[in-house]
Every structure is written in C-alpha cells, then in structure tokens.
Design a protein around this nucleic acid. Structure first.
Lengths: 214, 214
DNA sequence: GTTCGATGTATCGAGTCGATACATCGAGAG
DNA sequence: CTCTCGATGTATCGACTCGATACATCGAAC
C-alpha cells in the first residue's frame, strides 16, 4: 500500500519501457522529464529499483562497458588489460514481460491515482504510451479535481476565519491564479484530444499531432 | 543543520508572534497561509514544537478552556462545574523573548535561505513583519534565482541529450511558463516595493499600501 | 441519550531527502 | 608523465516528513 511510491514506480517502468537504462541515467531522465526541476535522490531511486526487481517487474542485465570505452590500448604489459575486471561497473535495468503487462494495466486506468498532484505529471509524461480514451479521462479527472479545489479555496476566502495580512493575501491570490492557469491549460489539451478522437472516428487513419496555439 | 525544518520553524515563530496559539489552530493557519493547499501533518508539527520549546524559543501556557465555553450554566448541582478538571486539554504556545529576538534576526536576513523554493513562500507570507529593505532584497534574490533556473532550463532544451516525446515536451513547456509567470509576478511586486521606498524617502510618513493592478 | 462530527494532542511505520562514501574514467595542468 | 579534478556510477545513513491512526472531549442533531 505504498501510495506515493507508486508514482515513482510508474515513472521508472515507463522510462524503462522506452529503453533499458542504468541507475544514473535513469535518475537524470526522471529529473529532466518529471517534476520539472525536482531532484530525485538515489536514496529514493535505488530502494525503488530493488523493490521492482524483487517483484519481478524489472530485471538487471549487468555491465556492458561504457559506450565510449573499447579503445584497444595496444600492448602495454603493466596494468592495462585488467585495471578492473568488469569495465566500469554498471547495472542496467530492463522490463520483464510481467513488468510490461503491469505497466500497461497501470497506464490503462483513469482514477484518482492518475490525477492527484504528483501522480498527474508522471501519467501525463507517459501519455505517449497511453491510449486516447484514457488520456481524455485523466485530463478531465484532473480538471474536475482542480475546480473542486478552486471552489474550496474561494469559499474559505469568502468566510475568513482569521484575517490575513496584505502579503499573505497576495500569496494566496497568486496561488489561486496558478490553479486557474492550469485549468485553462487543461481545457486546451482536452479540446485537442477531443479533436483528435473526432478526426480519428471520421477517418480512422494516422493523424499527425495537431499543434495547439500557445 | 536542519535545512527544511528551518522553514517550518520560521513559519511557526512568525504565526505565534501575531498571537499565541495551540497546535490544532496553528496547523490550520499554517495550511491556510503557506503552501497554498499543502497539508502539514501533526507528525511534522508536534516534533517541531517540541524542538522549539527545548531551544527556549517558545513556551507552553497550558489550558484555558475553549473560547465559546464559559457559559455560566446556572445552578444545576450535578456535573456542571467539573466535568473534567482542565476543560478540554489544550497546550497554548507563545514566543519567549529569546524567540522574538531570534525571529527578528531571521526575518532581517536576505540570503539563499530566504529565496529558495519552500522558504520563499514562508518568508513572503511574513513580509508584514519584515522591513522594507529586506523585502526588496528577498524579492530580487528570488527573481535572480528563477532566471538562473530559466537559463539552465532553456539550455538543456537547446542541447537535448535524450529526445522527449510530444507530451513530455508539453509538460516541460508548461513548467517553463509557470516560472516565467512567477518572474513577472515578482517584477510587479518589486516595482511596488520600490515605489513605496521612494515615496517614503520623499516624505517619510505613513504610506497606505498601494494596490497593484491584477 | 446517544451517535456523529469537529476539536484537540500525540505517535508510528513507511517513505524521502541531502549528504556522503566509494570507485572509475577522461581531460587538462604542471 | 603524473596529478588532480570533475563527471560518471552504485550504494547507504540519519534526519525528517507524511498519512494513518489512536485516543479523548465537546456541541448538536436525532
């Protein structure tokens, strides 16, 4: 029943589904793609990888020396051939068939676990591996969640239990604006997705990704 | 050397400086004012309060029955006067002189500890207790920090080490937009603060808080 | 009258972070 | 040529935080 850890698992699985990776590279991509500048630490990543291995969703494929290595380094007899027996140590992870299956089942579900704050970013980043209907339902779920929040927010502002000073109020206002902005962003995405679905229904052939105006 | 905990300490001290509070109420206000809808848990709050007490920055002033109690409840002899010996148990915290002094010293510093992500919100919410010059320097520091981030961000987009798919890119774009939006927000605040400072220099009398346009 | 929800204090297990340790490699400085 | 430095790479530790939960009292509804 790990709730937050689920997000990380999904993210790892999603990245490994694109290509096998080792921990260091995995962390870099995780930080690049998700939580735009959040720093995921190894103290989080490695235990998560262990867990996934233990559950049989990913497997390790030891070593393979670094890509830019492999220089023949001609016959110096000293310590050239064996400075270490395995090149630079590397542990490459890849999805097992069970992992692929599990990932597909996760990506096919559209529920609260898909549109809560942290989860949403990960799920959205993996939309490329998600089918159109699920994409739409996740986007709509997220939108509903945010408007509920907006509602509660405005209500608590209407009935202030404790007066806030000028700056605290401004901070609150800016926070509200951020959420409104995300709702607007979602509106654009939803209408784009609907457009795609409609186009695909009319003529079920490959659609080139439509660009929405910024 | 607690780094994140410092934020919470400052927030607690700042709130208690306005009025003594008990834990439950403290948590509600913390969640209302700071991290717009973040949920600070008791598992965080109570240890922090303990620590502050241990360091002599706040003190407990036990009990005082709930505000809406105190109804005389005329002469029923039974259990009226003493249903429980201490009303509903409450632990009220208030700043000690040392705490006030410490808070002032914290609020007077404008350094990275003031404008990093989490810290900034707290410091901004306490701007009402911060002098004008420090306010300005914190805002400017925050702005510099964000533009640096923007820079690194754009650079990593210009030299993509790994190609991102359509959705991951859109997520990144939206993240970038959020940061740009905050920079713009800061620009407005900075110019407002400068205006106040200038007005105060010209005629050093009380200025009514100028309203910037939404 | 008793059940329910708000108020209130407090702790626990699981998960996360930031720092750090350790090791290899490439490249630049002296 | 050697030496150091920074990037790459795996891994763990302690301190901290969260979400859930336990426990208790009060007001009000039924």
């Amino acid at each position: 029943m790990r709730s937050r850890s689920d997000v990380l698992e999904t993210a790892v699985l999603g990245l490994l589904n694109e290509s096998p990776l080792h921990g260091y590279e995995l962390r870099k991509r995780l930080n690049l793609v998700l939580g735009s500048f959040r720093a995921l630490s190894y103290g989080t990543l490695y235990p998560a990888l262990k867990g996934l291995v233990a559950r049989g969703l990913i497997a390790t494929a030891e070593s393979a020396p670094p890509p830019s290595a492999r220089k023949p380094k001609p016959g110096i007899p000293g310590r050239t051939t064996k400075p270490n027996p395995l090149g630079r140590r590397r542990v490459v992870y890849e999805l097992t068939p069970e992992g692929k299956e599990y990932l597909q089942s996760v990506l096919a579900t559209a529920g609260p676990a898909a549109w809560e704050d942290d989860n949403f970013d990960v799920r959205f980043a993996l939309f490329g591996q998600t089918d159109a209907e699920t994409r739409l339902r996740v986007l709509e779920g997220r939108r509903t969640r945010l408007t509920e929040r907006l509602e509660a927010f405005r209500e608590s502002t209407a009935h202030p239990r404790s007066r806030l000073d000028e700056y605290a109020l401004e901070l609150r206002r800016f926070g509200l604006e951020k959420v409104e902005r995300e709702v607007h962003w979602l509106d654009g995405l939803i209408s784009t997705e609907r457009g795609r679905a409609a186009a695909q229904n009319r003529s079920p052939q490959q659609e080139q990704p439509k660009k929405e105006r910024g």
